[in-house]
Simulated scan of single mutants.
Amino acid sequence: MPQTVRVNVRAVANAAAVRKTKRNGRDVIIVPSATMPDDVVMNGSQGKVLYPADEIANSYRQLERTPAPLGHPMVNGKFVSARDPEGINLGYIGAWNENVRQEDGRVLLDKVIDVEVANRSEGGKAVLAAIEAGGPIHTSTGLLCKLEPVQNNKTYAKIARSLVWDHDAILLNEEGAATPEQGVGMLVNANGESEEIEVINSSLTDVLDQEIDYAGHRLVEALTRREHAGVWERIKTAIMDAFVGTEREPSVNRKEDDMAVSDEQFKALSDEVKTLSESVSAENLGKAIGEAVANAVKPLVDAQAEITANQKAKDDAELTELREKIVKANLMDEAAAGELTLNAARALAPKAEPGQAAALNGAFKGNNDKKAGFKLPAGEKE
């Protein structure tokens, strides 16, 4: 039979996006926050627990209009519901959760704090002061669920089912990722009696996948700022494909003269980056990617250098040949021809073809001397 537990999931609110407004003539502060990514795996007292995307999607709306107490309410050393009368008396500071939604595989919500009500308690004043100071504001979602055991799975030992969301608390000077042994909770059973249940305290900030995701996004942003096309565009596409998991074609058209990178070279690079994403730790992710990309790029850079050198040799040979033709056609002397660039020599080359050379004296018209007004000396015939 699945075990019922209470889970407190710590996260960090977006303090930079805090905004102030008025509702019904009253000052309120709105603090955006987030919790529970799809298919997140977090630590539990009996092994890691998977929180499936479908279970989250089917239940997260329960957080709408729930209390946002200061800390998780405790009565006689035991966690209680934030909607329990004693829980309300202990933790209510005039704050609640609303605008609960799912975006990009994560549950997002706003905490609305009534400034006047918050100023009636020391805890509420402390929260307002923390927000005004601009420091990090931690939050923690309290929910109930049933843990379903899983056999022969290396990633997680249990699956969370039947999620019941109770509240999303504000934390100040409180460690939200304590060990499970540091607290128990109370649950009213079907007979109306209270029973103790295990409490699992977890933290999204400790999830390795989140750290890798953060590093990956920063990497993609850095690569996007690159101005180089060709080879680097392909490398960027390969890295993005490896982390995002898409199967799209590279974004750069494969032209014959596009840096002359073969399909085999590009595949080797893509495979190396994909292997990297599966094997490196979050701490060494940036360094490892840098080294792997550098190693993977080297053959491509060397190949391009060789292509450039070969092309230069061809251009030099062509320029030498064109200069010789121009000198032989008496268009320029050797010194002047030696100053010509390849493009200039190509433009002048057609005039060096037999029968195309320009006359040395532009006034000389050959057999058209009559039309030019040229008269033969006296006594000579045409």
Rank of each mutant, 00 (worst) to 15 (best):
N8V: 14
A11M: 06
N14P: 01
A16K: 10
A17F: 12
A17T: 14
K20D: 10
T21E: 06
K22C: 10
R23G: 07
P32Q: 02
P37M: 06
V40R: 04
M42S: 00
M42C: 02
G44S: 03
K48L: 14
P52T: 08
E55H: 10
I56R: 00
S59G: 00
Y60C: 02
Q62P: 05
E64Q: 13
G77S: 07
S81T: 08
R83S: 14
G87H: 05
I88Q: 10
G91N: 01
G105I: 01
L108F: 09
D110W: 02
V112Y: 02
I113M: 01
P136K: 00
T139F: 08
S140A: 15
T141M: 12
L143D: 05
Q151A: 13
N152G: 13
Y156L: 07
I159A: 08
R161E: 05
V164D: 07
H167W: 05
L172Y: 00
P180R: 02
N189F: 10
N189G: 11
N191A: 12
S203H: 03
Y214M: 10
R218A: 10
A222P: 00
E233H: 04
V244S: 13
E249H: 10
N253I: 11
V261D: 03
S262N: 01
K267M: 14
S279A: 14
V280H: 07
K287D: 15
V297P: 08
V301S: 15
A303F: 08
I307G: 11
N310R: 14
E318C: 03
E321M: 04
E324N: 12
E324Y: 08
L331K: 01
M332I: 09
D333K: 09
A335T: 09
N343K: 11
G355L: 03
N361E: 06
K365G: 07
N368P: 01
K381L: 12
